[in-house]
């Protein structure tokens, strides 16, 4: 870990000013990913701007829209256990609790969770080629060990996957990211536009501009709370990143699916909205056969790598299962 300057700030304006002023400056919130990356010499900021004292921890309903606003600096565990989140967005609660450990969730913030970097081993190992870490050095995983890697939307430049669980639920829930710009003004980013595919710029994980700070994440009102489930398959039963995960939510009109939301984790450089599956399900009845057909439809576009072909079959099964569990109060 390089030496760096540590700066403590007390409000968001000071924070964005400090980070905009210095290209090698970064915000420090929960630190659960950034400190790790700094120990690995993958992240080498010359300045850390400590934003932990900023007043961005509220979880409250926005009067005009009815949306639930969750503060960027609210801890993951507080968010998961907030009574309104549990009651109205149980999918988010489950997704947060499927990730990391109790200790890490007590530290990690919501904004930081969105900005987690990939856990690709080639990204983490500075002795290895990685375009995300060092553009132009090549993708180590493309022809290396790529069991954990992408099956959707990857490029020759990068086959890494985005590791968050929380964000998969946020993708399914069409969350909105509130951002404070470097000039102090606010802008919003639709969740689908927040994270990006690697294309030719894998070093860029998301659409934040330098110096921009997430201040809150808004959850629109929905009718999914009775019919949602977050399902995660991993190499051990807990405290591991997903091989594949699915956030599934259904809005029913009697036996008919009014609206379906399916998002996948562990399959792409961003939370993968399974739009083919969603489209297939709209207006259909909630049957195992339809869930399976929706899953098949989604996975047709998958392009697996050498070691992750299993993710295609697993993807089909986990989508169908997650939808079924969403219908059955979590039971399979």
């Amino acid at each position: 870990m390089r030496p760096f300057q540590y700066t403590k700030v007390n409000d968001a304006s000071a924070a964005v000013q400090a980070v905009s002023a210095n290209a090698n400056s970064q915000f420090l919130a929960g630190g659960t990913n950034l400190i790790d990356l700094m120990k690995e010499d993958v992240a080498c900021p010359v300045e850390l701007v400590d934003i932990t004292r900023l007043n961005l921890t509220q979880i409250s309903t926005v009067a005009e829209s009815g949306n639930l606003s969750i503060g960027a600096l609210a801890k993951n565990s507080d968010t998961a256990n907030h009574p309104v989140v549990r009651q109205n967005y149980p999918l988010l609660t489950q997704a947060i609790l499927a990730g990391a450990s109790g200790q890490i969730r007590n530290m990690a913030t919501n904004g930081g969770n969105l900005n987690q970097r990939t856990r690709c081993s080639y990204f983490y190992d500075t002795a290895m080629p990685c375009n995300k870490r060092e553009l132009g050095s090549g993708c180590g995983a493309l022809e290396g060990i790529n069991r954990y890697h992408a099956i959707f939307g990857w490029s020759e430049q990068c086959v890494a996957v985005y590791p968050s669980d929380m964000a998969i639920a946020l993708a399914a829930l069409d969350a909105i990211v509130q951002v404070q710009r470097a000039d102090g003004t606010q802008r919003t980013i639709a969740f689908a536009d927040y994270h990006r595919l690697p294309e030719n710029n894998p070093e860029k994980d998301n659409s934040l501009n330098p110096g921009e700070l997430i201040t809150a994440i808004e959850l629109p009102t929905n009718n999914f709370a009775d019919r949602s489930y977050y399902l995660k398959v991993r190499d051990r039963s807990s405290y591991a990143f997903a091989l594949v995960s699915v956030a599934a939510a259904l809005e029913m009109d009697g036996n008919q699916i009014q609206q379906a939301r399916v998002a996948m984790g562990g399959v792409a450089h961003k939370p993968w909205r399974a739009l083919e599956a969603e489209e297939f399900l709209t207006g259909k009845t909630a049957t195992a056969a339809n869930f399976q057909a929706a899953a098949e439809a989604e996975m047709r576009q998958a392009k697996p790598l050498e070691h992750n072909q299993f993710k295609v079959e697993l993807g089909k099964r986990i989508i169908a299962r997650a939808l079924m569990q969403a219908m059955n109060d979590g039971r399979a």
Partner: peptide
């Protein structure tokens, strides 16, 4: 039996499973 495995990249000889995040050992729930 269920999870432990060190994988090497055959081109470079580095263990791709570098840490306890990717060399999985049992946790309590297992």
């Amino acid at each position: 039996t269920l999870m432990e495995e060190t994988l090497f990249d055959k081109r470079f000889g580095n263990p791709v499973t570098r840490t306890l995040a990717d060399y999985h050992v049992p946790v309590n729930l297992d």
